[in-house]
Design a protein around this nucleic acid. Sequence first.
DNA 1: AGTCTGACCGCAAGCGCTTCCACGCGGACC
DNA 2: GGTCCGCGTGGAAGCGCTTGCGGTCAGACT
Lengths: 358, 358
Amino acid sequence: MVHDPRAPAARRVVDEEARGAGSGASLDDVARLAGVSASTASRALNNHPQVAAATRERVLTAAAGLDYVVSPEASRLAGGTSRARVAVVVPHLSRWFFGRLLEGLEAGLHEGAGPGVDVLLFLVGDVAGRRAFFEQLPARRRVDAAVVVGFEVDEAERARLELLGVHIVSAGGPREPFPSVTVDDHRAARQAVDHLVHLGHRRIALLASEDPADRGPDLRSTGYRDALADAGPEPDDDLVVRVPFGGPGGAEGMGRLLGLRRPPTAVFATADEIAGGAVRTLRRAGLRVGADVSVVGIDDHPVAEVLDLTTVAQPVHEQGLVAGRMVRALLAGDAPGAVTSRILPTHLILRGTTGPPP
Amino acid sequence: MVHDPRAPAARRVVDEEARGAGSGASLDDVARLAGVSASTASRALNNHPQVAAATRERVLTAAAGLDYVVSPEASRLAGGTSRARVAVVVPHLSRWFFGRLLEGLEAGLHEGAGPGVDVLLFLVGDVAGRRAFFEQLPARRRVDAAVVVGFEVDEAERARLELLGVHIVSAGGPREPFPSVTVDDHRAARQAVDHLVHLGHRRIALLASEDPADRGPDLRSTGYRDALADAGPEPDDDLVVRVPFGGPGGAEGMGRLLGLRRPPTAVFATADEIAGGAVRTLRRAGLRVGADVSVVGIDDHPVAEVLDLTTVAQPVHEQGLVAGRMVRALLAGDAPGAVTSRILPTHLILRGTTGPPP
DNA sequence: AGTCTGACCGCAAGCGCTTCCACGCGGACC
DNA sequence: GGTCCGCGTGGAAGCGCTTGCGGTCAGACT
């Protein structure tokens, strides 16, 4: 921003430069070329029924010839209809889960007819970034809806958005009091651990992400705990290992477990990516995965297929899809209360990394 | 807000509904509450030096109390400073490469001080979607710059954007006549294949993605061909297999190679994800990867680490980062010619899936 | 003491568009 | 043959903000 009052011209020049050549054609130009008034030109361009076909044609031609594009600012400001804007807030993008979910979200947001929406991307890795998002959003940008992916929104944040009239939906995170779509992580973990129990395992380890932000209150860990509690084996804290998210973390955690006096016969990892690392360590140690030691993960990440990893699949793309539809419903005027949250089912996929204990 | 008793009220109501509760506070409200004129309020909010500290304080307090947020439309329309908008155009999101690159891009776009930018996400999977993007962009939305990730932009498309004053930069795709950042895929392929050649392999297969859109004109394949041509082994079409991108594709392609009368002793896959599938097939077939058959990929995808896969790493995050900086330079007024394209280096990472032929 | 200089502030003019209203006009009607 | 009607159009009023310009004071000068 230039404060010097003597420099209006300068600012304009900078502006032009910054914005590029920028077609300068305005609605008035189009109207003039078509020999009509701006009002008529506007009506013609907006497909108003009240303009004569011939006139409309003339206006459209003029607009095309001038490479005219409406100024979205002016249009929206003047009360014209304009595409909705939705913010997508994600903590990561390089993890498969988030990318995949976003693909579904995109599909859900654009499916059907309608005017379509613009998607604003906000990558808020850490808590600070998240807080900044919720504080800044109002300050300068403005969206009609926000979908948060994979993390919990606290009440204050939600209230702030609602105050601004921003719809909010959550996908792939914890259950929320507002429209959300997710899976039952607690149950998914139980499916995984129950499977190990049914195979006869008693010493089952937990390999969990140490990042508290991952999957909110760690339902997958409590699912593990509850499954064990029901099954009989008394908990052994040595068998619970927390590691950084990802393959290297899993590999290192598995190493620690192998160093135990009484190593586990099976391992439940809270994510396939962690499980993958564990598998690698086991193989390197010369152990046969699925025979000497069983490993099960969650997600059905592509790596699971490659590793022949038993896992509990969750419908990631679909969570995004459903969330996208929810946003559209909200944007169409449905009351938030009328948009029902959904919990999508998960299911065990049997592959080669699990088997009875040796 | 005064309500005209007649028709306008109806419009307003619809608006309110569509936009949600929407705080109604306008600049005038703030000004009134603070006991100043709108001009002064505006200046105070925009940190203009010409307002008395006490006044500014009063305005800020009023604004906070009213939960006031500027209307970006009005602000931008009136010539106020506003954050730039950049479109990010990607063909996929669930693939690691794109997500990872976008993380770098985000970082590059937001680094340093400056006003920051808004990122509009466009997911254009197929050619039709891409075409639609380049045609639609002008129609309704408006961005200041676009970065295309991982695909080629044809001259007509580029010209269209330039006409509209939209800067464009390319990342992770082919080299372009406009600012772009990428790696030398041809060279990367050579690094991989040369490695196999140096180990003594003569029958080296190519496992390539069949999607012609992947990596544009398939430089990795030609890199393979050229490396072989230089090394001596005469080309054998049986050893060239094209498969759908991904693990399953790689697995199936490897199966085909294994069925050959004279199977290869080494395989070069144009992506780690494909290589991963190949490794799986080999293991299932009871072959020792790295001893009986060597496999090398490209990318240094996380799966490579887990599979202990030899690969040629490319700096994905950094490509995004550099692209983001280029956009900022362009937005700051640098001429496109002054922003030099970059080709980032790749390097071989030796792991366990390659070794001398049996 | 009179003038001058700034610091602060209000006025008003738009930014480019949409929409309400009024208006002219030709045909359908009695 | 004069109304009435409705279609197609232009005029004008904003949407909410920014900013050049000019006015109003308080001190700081001479």
